[in-house]
Simulated assay, not measured.
Amino acid sequence: MSNSASLAATFVLDQCKQDAETTPQSVCSESCGPGYRKSLPEGKAVCCFVCTQCPENEISNETADVDQCMKCLDHQYVNTERNHCLQKSMTFLDYDDPLGIGLSCTALCFSALSALVLGIFVKKQDTPIVKANNRTLSYILLLTLHFCFLCPFLFIGHPNTATCILQQTTFGVLFTVAVSTVLAKTITVVLAYKVTAPGRRIRWLLVTRAPNFIVPICTFIQIVLCGVWLGNSPPFVDTDTHSEQEHIIVLCNNGSVTAFYCMLGYLRALALGSFTVAFLARNLPDTFNEAKFLTFSMLVFCSVWVTFLPVYHSTKGKVMVAVEVFSILASSAGLLGCIFAPKCYIILLRPQKNSIQGLRDKIHYRPKS
């Protein structure tokens, strides 16, 4: 070997020893183990590389030095050492999950409560407070709220094609019936006041129960929207492999996002219309006028669903489903509590006010505006 070659070899060895002192994880000291790959820092000799941990969702399970890590499949995730790919487990909002148990129990309690209120109204159907503001509409609203509280059970459990189709459409139709019923009750209050005003000839609207037709008309429009949705791009079972590292989330894909927001938009417009009419009629001087309670109920309803959209889009996986279920229960409870709690209070605890004599006393002592 020539002197120049010997000097070059000695220089390379000295360089590697010098880098080994400053960079322990180099070939000059030890090899890169599983979970790491070779990386050559800029300006260093080829023989002196450093060991860099594999990026997220990538592994290296070789004992010898490797240049590249290997990506795990979509249905797999890496262990903490990043040397093995593990199988992801399926997850969804289940009845065994604490969140699912809590929502299920809440839904059952509220559905039982709505059934109890309906039973009270049927039993006291001939009393003034039940007859006021259209008894039939009260029955429709209570029955609809009962099914609204049962609606969350379509969202809990392993999704399938049937539940995915029924989830949003059932929710949309039921809440359309509920909100349109509130609108019809509010219009009934307005018409009742207008009939008593001098010179008004619109008694036939109350006699023919014209406000009751608001419910089927509004519901029919929502059914048409849902029918177009199901005919073009219906919801289907889907999986989310990226939101959670160790789980594959089984969920329902809404299909057409446009159709989904059309359904919600129509429901929102109906709710805003009901709130506006109820707000304008809140101070009408009518006995057992429930317009104030209807106004507050629609305020709660609108507040829940205005809050729902940003929260819904900021969550993922089963928490997203839980947010929608909670919104369904909260808005339904708002309607039940705001509209029927004051009536049940009078029926059960102040029965003297729920009589002909009590009605006469209320009219006699009503303050003049």
Score class of each variant (00 low, 15 high):
65 D>N: 15
42 E>N: 00
51 C>R: 04
45 A>G: 03
111 S>N: 06
98 P>N: 05
101 I>E: 04
103 L>E: 03
78 V>S: 14
62 E>P: 01
64 A>T: 15
93 L>R: 06
91 T>P: 00
46 V>G: 03
54 C>M: 08
58 E>C: 12
76 Q>A: 07
35 G>Q: 07
49 F>W: 14
94 D>P: 05
101 I>W: 01
94 D>L: 05
45 A>P: 02
67 D>V: 07
103 L>M: 10
95 Y>C: 03
104 S>L: 10
58 E>R: 09
77 Y>N: 06
95 Y>A: 05
40 L>R: 07
62 E>V: 08
68 Q>S: 14
59 I>C: 08
107 A>T: 06
102 G>C: 11
64 A>I: 10
36 Y>H: 14
43 G>W: 02
96 D>G: 09
61 N>E: 10
97 D>T: 08
106 T>E: 01
36 Y>F: 15
67 D>Y: 09
51 C>D: 01
92 F>R: 00
37 R>N: 09
73 L>F: 07
42 E>I: 04
71 K>P: 15
72 C>D: 02
79 N>K: 06
49 F>C: 01
108 L>C: 12
100 G>D: 05
96 D>V: 09
101 I>F: 08
62 E>W: 06
98 P>V: 12
96 D>P: 00
45 A>C: 04
100 G>R: 02
35 G>M: 05
94 D>M: 03
113 L>Y: 13
71 K>C: 11
114 S>Q: 04
47 C>G: 13
113 L>C: 08
89 S>W: 02
110 F>V: 03
85 C>G: 08
115 A>M: 14
73 L>N: 14
86 L>F: 05
79 N>M: 04
70 M>K: 13
97 D>H: 15
80 T>H: 12
114 S>H: 03
97 D>I: 07
104 S>E: 00
99 L>Q: 09
74 D>T: 11
61 N>R: 09
60 S>I: 05
98 P>I: 13
91 T>C: 00
111 S>I: 05
56 E>G: 01
55 P>F: 02
41 P>M: 06
67 D>P: 01
47 C>T: 09
94 D>Q: 07
60 S>E: 07
56 E>M: 03
115 A>V: 11
34 P>D: 10
79 N>D: 15
68 Q>C: 11
41 P>G: 03
78 V>C: 13
48 C>W: 00
46 V>F: 11
37 R>Q: 09
85 C>W: 10
98 P>K: 11
87 Q>D: 13
77 Y>H: 15
51 C>S: 04
79 N>A: 09
103 L>Y: 06
59 I>D: 01
60 S>V: 04
85 C>A: 09
106 T>M: 12
38 K>W: 01
109 C>Q: 02
36 Y>C: 04
55 P>Y: 01
54 C>W: 10
67 D>L: 12
85 C>R: 09
74 D>V: 12
110 F>C: 10
89 S>Y: 03
79 N>E: 11
71 K>N: 08
37 R>G: 01
52 T>Y: 08
75 H>I: 02
36 Y>L: 11
33 G>R: 10
90 M>G: 00
72 C>N: 05
69 C>L: 05
84 H>D: 10
52 T>E: 13
58 E>S: 12
109 C>S: 15
